[in-house]
Structure formats: structure tokens, C-alpha cells
Design a protein around this nucleic acid. Structure first.
Lengths: 243, 243
DNA sequence: TAGTGGTCTAGACCACTTC
DNA sequence: AAGTGGTCTAGACCACTAG
């Protein structure tokens, strides 16, 4: 293993973190693809010349961060964006008296343009960089509950389709463009619905709706998507865990 | 170590989880108090007749759940509800262009009564069980931004003061009543502000505000507090991490 | 200098899955 | 039966804190 030395003693990087960084690199480089099993612990350990325990500690951390999925007796897999996984991990809107369901989408438009100031800032792009904009509605339990607007850096999504955009976008980003969303941050506010959104959501203009402002990034931290979801909370809520 | 056997082989409980359960019990029983250091790993290992590695795995899990704080070279401590910790862990409202700050409180009222249906359900109490109700306002950056209402089971809070309730409630619960909040769930909605809340928040009646509905529980899962916070998001947001 | 948690190793055995 | 991850042990050494 390379030690990754750079400077003074205060900088100390444990071996297992170096192993982890190397394995993340392999996933980021698409040497190991989502859904595939990675080599068994003893194999990786022998290849890198470290003990199995060290590899294990790296793998355990990656599993804790939902980058890998470990299954006793079967193997260790690169995580996939199954609907079930997204539902559990990225989708915090749940119907009030029921179980979480993955919402259906109705595409409204896909357009190309250049980033405005807010988009450049949100996605850390150069001014006027080309972007793709998507508008769509989402149904929860058969009722339109969300009107959302997305902005993507066009450079990362060559030949993005103008229609037939799938419901599960993160799965689509991975399958079609090799981009895996690994995390993000959301800021939630209460705002008055625009007359346009209100009409779609079956509300009167000015009714209170949730604005969920999300910036999602890839494994290496690159910002991939800026999403603004206007959500009626008549029959559903945004949930947060305190731990 | 007791094996905790009860039935058939399918039920398998690793040794380190039994250790963890026992240590949590000691904290729950207040044998080890918040802020105190617990015995060093080799001491606990010898006492329980397990290896240090097994104790370590239990302690690491508890540290990951914020029940313990480990400090290299110093020791392992039972977590305290410092302002800094609550701010980071339980308080998800942040000012829009600044750093998170712990909000000041203005107490409005403390009353005693019997639980209504909603309160009984939220706190899993018997119908008409005695409860304590608190109403207060909270300031972020000098501006009243939150109007909140709390309900507590009176049985757990004997001789609760009618005034001079501190700003940091979770610290107060721990110091005065020996109750440590360890987690909870929040459901967030957008609603129209009542005329009373709107007046306190400096909004017009009916303006959109965030309703944050929180149920907080202790280490052993007992429900301790039901809190409804009506929050103006003019200058702050509710943040959520996606991981 | 002594004591703490943090890392790393090596090896044994267990539980689960698949063939 | 073979192969995987999961648990448990024992011991060495490192990094950090305190006296």
C-alpha cells in the first residue's frame, strides 16, 4: 500500500482509509459497476498486501455509507438505485396514514438552455454553462402532490432525451450516463403556491406548500442535480429522523 | 457473559450486542451518568470475561449512535446534551446565510392538564393521563422565528416548575429529572399560520409556515415529549441530509 | 511517563448461501 | 462441501492526552 505521505507527522491517514479511497475510486471509475459483486475480502487483502481485517474495516465503512451492500454467505455488492433503496434513502415524503410508495411521474417538459446565476451557484458551474431543465408532476396514492423542477449540467448528460424520461431518475442517470448519485442536502421552506403550481396540485393560489430544495452529488462530490419540489402536504409529510 | 438464550438456533445474538445491551442498561439505570467517563476497555473486558475487541465493537456502535463519545488518549464518556451537540444533532432549523445558532427562548406558559386524544396517541399514554403543556417562542438571530407547543407526561416530570424553564430543555430533562432524550422522529408540513402565531412571528394571518411535529424518546424507547413547532421560513430553513 | 483509544495483524470458528 | 461475510480472540504497536 502506498502511504500517501505528503507533509508533517500531524497528517496521519490510517491504512484502511487508504484502502477505502482506492476502492471508491474503482467504483467511481466504473471498474466495478452497480449491482455487481466485488472480489471477496481475502482476495482484495492479498492483492493490496494488507490484512483481511483492514479490508473489512474499509468495506464496513462503505456499507455504512450505502455505497456497498454486504450479504452474509453471498458477497459484497456495489449498491444499486433500486426503487426500494431510493424510497428508503432519498425520498422523505410519505403519505400520512400509509406506507411509503414510490411516486409516479408525469413529465411536463425537458428543455435545454444556459445556466442563470442561481443555477450556476447551485451546481458550481461556470456562468452561462449549458444546462438541461426538467419540469414534472408526481403522484402519491393517485393524487398529484408534487410539482418539481430540475436543473442538470448538460455536459454530464450528452444526448439527454427530450421525452420518455423515466420515473426513476437516479436509476436512469446510472444506467444511461454512468452517474451514481451518492448523497445530497435538502433545505425545506414553507411558501405560497404559485397559481400554476396550485392549479396542478389542486390547491388555491397562495396555499401553503413545502418547497424542498435539493442539491445531489456523486461519489466524488461533483454536483449533479438541483431539484426544487413544491409539495402539497394535505395528505403527506416530509419526515426526518433524529438520532 | 450470559448467553441470553430463549429458543431455537435461528435466534442468534452476537456477544458484542449482549455487551452493548448491558452497557446501555447501565446508562439507562443512571449507574453511569452523562458527562462521566466509563471504565477503560480492558477493565470492562475483564469484568465481563470477553475480549477487548468485543467490548470495542459494542462501544463503537454506541458511539456511532451518539450514546457515547470517545476521545483518543482520554477515555470514553456518556454523551451529554451540550448546546453544541443538540444544535448539531436535534436542531435542523438553520439561518439562511449564516452559521447555525442555538435559539433563545421566551416562555409563554406552563400548564398542567389531562391528555386529549391526540396527546395520548402521540405519547402512548392512557386516556386522560396527566400532562404538562408548555408554550414558548424562539428567536433566531434576534428575530422570533418559531412558536412552539410541547406536551410532556406529567408522571415523568414531578414538580415541574411553572416558570423559569431553561432554554435548553433536553439538558434540563437530564439534569433535573434524569431523562436523556436519545432520538425521535419529525414530520414536517406547510400550513397557514394561525392569527395568534402569525402575530408572534411578525406575519400576516394565513401566511405559510412550517409545522414541525416531533416525538422524542429516551434510550429505552419511552416517549418523552411531543413538540409542535410553527416556524417562519422567511430567513431560515429546515435542513435534511441525504446519505 | 503512563494510560487511553485507534490501528493492524493473524488465526479460529460460526452463520448463511449456493452448488 | 465449499465459499462468503460475521464474530471472537490475542497481541503488537501507534497516536493522543495528561500529569
Amino acid at each position: 500500500m502506498a502511504d500517501g505521505f505528503a507533509g508533517a507527522p500531524p497528517g496521519f491517514r490510517p491504512l484502511y482509509r487508504q484502502v477505502k479511497a482506492l476502492l471508491i475510486q474503482r467504483i467511481s471509475d466504473r471498474q466495478w459497476l452497480p449491482g455487481q459483486a466485488i472480489p471477496a475480502e481475502p482476495i482484495i487483502a492479498a492483492e493490496l498486501g494488507v490484512s483481511q481485517g483492514t479490508v473489512r474495516k474499509a468495506l464496513d465503512e462503505m456499507a455504512a455509507e450505502n455505497v456497498l451492500v454486504r450479504r452474509q454467505g453471498r458477497g459484497t455488492y456495489v449498491a444499486r438505485h433500486d426503487e426500494a433503496r431510493i424510497l428508503f434513502q432519498f425520498f422523505k415524503i410519505v403519505p400520512d396514514g400509509g406506507v411509503p410508495v414510490f411516486p409516479d411521474s408525469r413529465l411536463r417538459s425537458v428543455t435545454q438552455g444556459v445556466a442563470d446565476a442561481a443555477e450556476s451557484r447551485a451546481l458550481a458551474l461556470a456562468p452561462a454553462a449549458p444546462v438541461i431543465r426538467i419540469a414534472r408532476l408526481r403522484e402519491i396514492a393517485g393524487v398529484v402532490a408534487i410539482s418539481e423542477y430540475l436543473t442538470l449540467p448538460a455536459a454530464l448528460f450528452p444526448d439527454f432525451p427530450g421525452e420518455d424520461v423515466p420515473n426513476n431518475l437516479y436509476d436512469f442517470y446510472a444506467a444511461r450516463f454512468g452517474i451514481t448519485i451518492s448523497g445530497g442536502q435538502e433545505r425545506v421552506k414553507a411558501v405560497a403556491a404559485s397559481s400554476d403550481d396550485a392549479a396542478h396540485l389542486g390547491l388555491v393560489a397562495g396555499a401553503p406548500v413545502l418547497l424542498i430544495d435539493r442539491i445531489a452529488h456523486a461519489l466524488d462530490g461533483t454536483r449533479i442535480e438541483w431539484r426544487r419540489s413544491y409539495c402539497s402536504t394535505e395528505a403527506c409529510s416530509y419526515v426526518g429522523e433524529l438520532k
